[in-house]
Amino acid sequence: MIPTSWFLILGAILFSLGVLGVLTRRNGITIFMSIELMVNAVNLTFIAYARELGSLHGLMWVFFIMAVAAAEAAVGLAIFIALYRHRETIDVDEANLMHW
């Protein structure tokens, strides 16, 4: 059987890649994909721990997280579409109306 730590390390790598993507990418959709990657890394971590602990709680979490992520996708994509109507682009660096 594959040891739990491997899954945890994979989860950590995926999570870091997600954070890196959010920090470096400038396209709104790519940023959103990176956020989803972070959330899925969390799911993987929960499942790995649930298997190790032999408890169902972690698996339940994953269902909740998937439902929330779907709602988040609906809201997020709607916001990007609204922004595109104003700007004709969803490059987040172009969103610079407010500066001090």
Partner: peptide
């Protein structure tokens, strides 16, 4: 404003969740 709030808010809740998963473990 909505876009900035969404991108940063969704990222922060991802971070929050990862914290929760480690606490669970």
């Amino acid at each position: 404003a909505a876009m900035k709030y969404f991108v940063l808010g969704a990222t922060s809740s991802g971070i929050l969740l990862y914290g929760m998963s480690l606490i669970y473990g």
